[in-house]
């Protein structure tokens, strides 16, 4: 994922990207090895930030590498959290790991397809800039509302 901004940025951006990617890698490895889940979003945010910086600098109309970035971030997050889940040593049912791997892979494929469709839709509505801004603002507000709601109900005793 870090290779995308690295390959496309100028020399200054590349130098920064290398450092950011190194820090993200260390954070991800540390989170998995030491069992610190809080470092997983930190690592992925760093990589995503590098990509965002490259997008901000670049003047390309629409980046076609988005599906790869989206699925890459998702797989990295999902596999890291899965690895953290497995830190509890337990004997599972036969085929449980395989089933989970298939589910993650299928999710990855679905994300690639969905991202591609979204890109096409965005390209279509891009001419109407206000609509895009409204859609983005609505999505951002929705996410924030979800986060606040989850934060309030995260430790609710059901019984």
């Amino acid at each position: 994922m870090a290779a995308v901004p690295l390959a496309r940025g100028d020399d200054t951006l590349q130098a920064v990207d290398v450092r950011v990617a190194a820090v993200a890698f260390v954070a991800l490895v540390a989170s998995v090895v030491r069992g610190w889940p809080v470092l997983v979003p930190v690592a992925l945010t760093l990589v995503g930030g590098a990509y965002a910086a490259e997008l901000a600098v670049d003047d390309a109309p629409l980046d076609l590498a988005v599906p790869a970035i989206a699925v890459g971030l998702f797989l990295a997050a999902e596999l890291a959290y899965w690895s953290l889940d497995e830190r509890r040593r337990s004997v599972g049912d036969a085929g449980m790991g395989l089933r989970r791997a298939a589910l993650v892979a299928a999710s990855g494929v679905a994300i690639v397809l969905a991202s591609s469709v979204l890109l096409v839709v965005i390209d279509e509505v891009r001419a109407r800039g206000l609509a895009l801004d409204l859609t983005g603002a609505l999505a951002a507000v929705s996410v924030i509302v979800i986060v606040v709601a989850l934060g309030r109900t995260a430790r609710t005793d059901a019984r």
Partner: peptide, 10 residues
């Protein structure tokens, strides 16, 4: 940049 919204959408 709508690309970042697509990345965050999943």
């Amino acid at each position: 940049r709508p690309e970042l919204a697509v990345v965050a959408a999943p």
